[in-house]
Simulated scan of single mutants.
Amino acid sequence: MKDGPDIAQIAALIGDPARANMLTALMSGKALTAGELAREAGISPQTASSHLKKLLDGGLLRVKGQGRHKYYGLSGEDVAHTLENLMGLAAGHGHLRTRTGPNDLEMREARVCYNHLAGSRGVQLFTSMRTRGFLDVSDDLVSLTETGARFCTDFGIDLDDLNKSRAPLCRPCLDWSERETHLAGKLGRAMLSRMEELGWLSRKPGSRIIQFSRSGSAKFSEQFGT
């Protein structure tokens, strides 16, 4: 037996179709009940409970109680980052869901990837910030430049508050639909939150889809046009 992390256990947890559907549903960043996750996976509540226990024991989920209900969410951004990369790998090899429609186009344009903006809009934001010298990208590492820090402050983001946490400020995330990089990490989360505060966009209920208002779309293109 070789030493080191056992990726087989994590792969087995994610590889089950029902558990994969549950994990994907939680990529919106919203916590869901066992019943809601059972419906997402198309399984009975009893079977869902068994799957959820395995995911909790495997460290992929966290659970919080509120009143009579328990709410499940991904255990952290590293799990979401791994899932997004796996989605990109699957898409790149032609393993796509067969059901397509308007929602599919909306998902590809703008969606929540756990807590940051993904899709073509997310890639546009990352590309714009990199091209304008706000982000320094080297060897899959992303850092905020001094010019970028001034831009973020002017945009209404409190960098001092973000830096109180040890989590990465900037993190590259491979977008599964665009096959290019979008911005994750604390800054990615803050950028999405700020655009919500400004009224540029809103989250479609019961979905990972992000919808831009007409004025918000124009302001986003003005600010992050490439």
Score class of each variant (00 low, 15 high):
Gly67Asn: 03
His116Trp: 09
Glu77Ser: 09
Asp136Cys: 11
Ser143Met: 11
Glu146Leu: 13
Arg130Asn: 06
Gly65Asp: 00
Thr127Val: 15
Gly148Val: 07
Val63Asn: 00
Ala91Tyr: 12
Gly88Phe: 02
Met87Gly: 14
Gln66Tyr: 04
Glu106Met: 13
Leu141Val: 15
Asp158Ala: 04
Cys113Tyr: 07
Thr127Lys: 12
Gly92Cys: 10
Val63Gly: 01
Asp154Glu: 13
Leu162Met: 02
Glu84Ser: 15
Gly76Val: 03
Met87Ser: 10
Tyr72Lys: 07
Leu144Met: 07
Ser120Leu: 12
Glu146Met: 15
Leu144Glu: 05
Gly76Ser: 01
Thr153His: 03
Asp139Ala: 11
Ala91Leu: 12
Arg108Val: 06
His69Ile: 13
Arg97Asn: 11
Ala80Met: 07
Arg108Leu: 12
Leu162Ser: 05
Ser128Asp: 10
Cys170Trp: 00
His93Glu: 11
Cys152Tyr: 04
Ala167Leu: 10
Ile157Asp: 00
Met129Cys: 14
Leu86Gln: 02
Arg111Trp: 04
Lys64Cys: 04
Asp104Leu: 06
Ala149Pro: 01
Val112Pro: 07
Gly65Thr: 03
Val137Met: 02
His69Glu: 13
Cys170Val: 00
Arg132Met: 15
Met107Cys: 06
Leu141Ile: 14
His81Thr: 15
Leu135Trp: 08
Arg171Lys: 13
Gly94Thr: 03
Gly119Pro: 09
Cys152His: 05
Pro102Tyr: 06
Gly148Glu: 01
His81Pro: 11
Gln66Asp: 00
Lys164Cys: 12
